[in-house]
Amino acid sequence: MAKPLNVLRLGDEAAQGRGVSVVKMRTFLLFLSVSLSAAGVAVCGPVGYIAFIAPHLARRIMGTSNAFVILPLSGLIGSCTLMGTDLSARMLFYPQELPVGLFTVMFGGLLLLFFLNKRRKST
């Protein structure tokens, strides 16, 4: 879906001119993202903040919004971040294991607030 996503970034008229059905594509992408997010939360619990933060981190690291670059890198960043938060949830208070959702919410929530605050200051 990286190609249609890149075309949609050009705007609705340009995407239609290039043969992309904008309404159908947005509806499909919305349905797909909601379904995948719901399945992930149902299986893993509240680790959704990682999914919110990984694309923003990938964009900052690579300095581009090209979906061909951002999508694989955000998957890699998300998986590494989740492994790190899981490891810290298991090891920080060693005899006791804390839920990984607690650490992902703390880490992801802080980063999300940081990005929102930075965006608000830039506008």
Rank of each mutant, 00 (worst) to 15 (best):
G19V: 10
I61N: 02
I53Y: 00
V43L: 11
I77N: 01
K121S: 04
L113W: 04
S122V: 11
M91I: 01
G19N: 03
R18Y: 08
F103S: 13
V69R: 05
Y49W: 15
N6E: 01
F115S: 15
G84W: 08
V7G: 02
I61A: 11
G84N: 10
S33M: 12
Q96A: 14
V43K: 13
G63V: 00
N66K: 09
F28C: 14
G45F: 09
A51T: 12
T27Y: 07
F52P: 00
G48R: 14
H56D: 01
V41L: 11
S65C: 00
G101N: 07
L5W: 01
K3T: 00
V34T: 14
L113I: 12
G40L: 10
M1R: 03
N6W: 03
E13N: 04
E97K: 07
L87R: 11
Q96I: 15
I77S: 00
I61R: 09
E97Y: 03
P72S: 06
G63T: 01
L98N: 10
L111S: 05
A42R: 14
A2G: 04
E97G: 00
V69L: 03
L30W: 05
V20I: 14
Y49M: 15
M83H: 02
G78C: 12
G75E: 11
G19T: 03
D12M: 00
P99A: 11
T81A: 12
F103N: 06
M83V: 10
C44I: 08
K24T: 13
I70A: 08
T123K: 14
V69A: 03
T64Y: 02
P72K: 08
S88I: 07
V47E: 05
L5F: 03
E97T: 06
G11H: 05
N6K: 05
L82E: 09
K3W: 00
V34W: 11
L116Q: 13
L10Y: 05
M83T: 08
P46T: 13
G101L: 11
R60F: 11
A2V: 07
Q16H: 10
F103G: 04
R26Q: 13
D12V: 00
T81V: 05
P99R: 14
I53G: 01
K3S: 00
V34S: 15
T81I: 03
V43Y: 06
P55W: 01
K24H: 08
V47K: 08
V20F: 06
P72D: 02
S21V: 04
S79R: 15
D86M: 06
I61S: 04
F115T: 13
P95Y: 00
F68K: 13
A14T: 14
F103R: 05
Y49R: 09
K24G: 08
G78A: 14
L98M: 08
S35R: 08
L36F: 13
L32N: 07
G109F: 01
F103V: 02
G11I: 05
M62Q: 02
L76P: 07
P55N: 02
R18M: 14
Q96F: 08
R60I: 11
G48C: 04
Q16S: 11
A2C: 10
V41E: 12
N6P: 04
S122D: 13
V22Y: 06
M106T: 13
A42Y: 10
G45N: 10
S33T: 15
